[in-house]
C-alpha cells in the first residue's frame, strides 16, 4: 500500500441562487506517500476547491475521498477534524496566524491540541529551524510577510503530518522570500517523508514538484 490519498469520481457543485456551478467534475486522483504534487490552472478552475476537499474542509456532492485507506467523505465534521489535526498540515496564501498570539504560541497551538508535553519548547525548535529564533515572542503584526509564512509552515508541519496542503504559499511574497519558502517546504517533505500538494500559479515553483496536475474547467487534464 503505497497510496496516501485517493479521490474517486469527485464532483463538487456550488449553488448560487437558482444556478449551480460545477466546480469539480469526476475527479480521480491518487497521491502516493512522499509524493510532491503541484496543482496548476487558471483562476476559477477549481484548484483551491480540490485541496479544500482533500483537507476535509468541504464535502463533495458525489464521489469518495480515501485517506490512508479510510473513507473520509461520510465522516462528521468532528471526525474529519480528528484526522486533520494529526495527519494534515495546511499552508495558506495569507498566512492566517492568530493576530494576538506570538509566533511561538501560534505554532504551539497545534501541538497542544495534540497533547504534546512541552508544546512551546517544540514550537521554538521548529521556529529555530526556520531561522526565527529572534522572533519567538513577536506578534504576527511585528513580522514580515516571509517570516509570517515561515511561522505558518512551522504550524502546519508541527505534527509531522503525512500530507501538507499548500494554497499559493508564495502568492503574497516577493521573489527572494518565495524561493526561501519553497526551499523550506520541499526540504522538509524530503527530510520527513511527507506528501505535498501545492496549488500555485508560479511555474517555477510548480516545476519543483515531482508531479504536475493541471486543472481546467473542473477537470484534471
Amino acid at each position: 500500500m503505497n497510496s496516501l490519498l485517493k479521490l474517486k469520481k469527485i464532483n463538487l457543485k456550488y449553488q448560487t441562487g437558482k444556478d449551480s456551478i460545477n466546480v469539480l467534475r469526476n475527479i480521480d486522483l491518487n497521491i502516493k506517500k512522499k509524493e510532491t504534487v503541484s496543482v496548476i490552472g487558471e483562476s476559477g478552475s477549481g484548484k483551491t476547491s480540490l485541496i479544500m476537499l482533500i483537507g476535509g474542509l468541504e464535502k463533495p456532492n458525489s464521489g469518495k475521498i480515501i485517506f490512508q485507506g479510510q473513507e473520509i467523505t461520510g465522516l462528521s465534521e468532528d471526525e474529519v477534524s480528528e484526522i486533520r489535526k494529526k495527519n494534515i498540515g495546511i499552508v495558506f496564501q495569507s498566512f492566517y496566524l492568530i493576530p494576538n498570539y506570538t509566533a511561538v504560541e501560534n505554532v504551539a497551538l497545534t501541538l497542544e491540541l495534540n497533547n504534546f508535553k512541552n508544546p512551546e519548547n517544540e514550537a521554538k525548535i521548529l521556529l529555530d529551524r526556520f531561522g526565527l529564533k529572534h522572533r519567538f515572542n513577536n506578534l504576527p503584526s511585528q513580522l514580515s510577510g516571509g517570516e509570517q509564512q515561515r511561522v505558518s509552515i512551522a504550524r502546519a508541519i508541527a505534527m509531522k503530518p503525512k500530507l501538507i496542503l499548500a494554497d499559493e504559499p508564495t502568492g503574497n511574497l516577493d521573489t527572494e522570500n518565495s524561493i526561501m519558502i519553497a526551499n523550506i517546504l520541499f526540504k522538509y517533505v524530503k527530510e520527513e517523508g511527507s506528501s505535498l500538494i501545492m496549488v500555485t500559479h508560479d511555474t517555477k515553483l510548480a516545476d519543483k514538484a515531482k508531479r504536475k496536475i493541471k486543472i481546467k474547467d473542473g477537470k484534471i487534464k
Binding site: 468532528d78 477534524s81 480528528e82 486533520r84 489535526k85 492566517y96 497551538l109 491540541l113 495534540n114
Partner: peptide, 8 residues
C-alpha cells in the same frame, strides 16, 4: 484557523 488545525 482553529478549525483548520483541528479544533472542534
Amino acid at each position: 484557523v482553529r478549525k483548520a488545525v483541528g479544533f472542534y
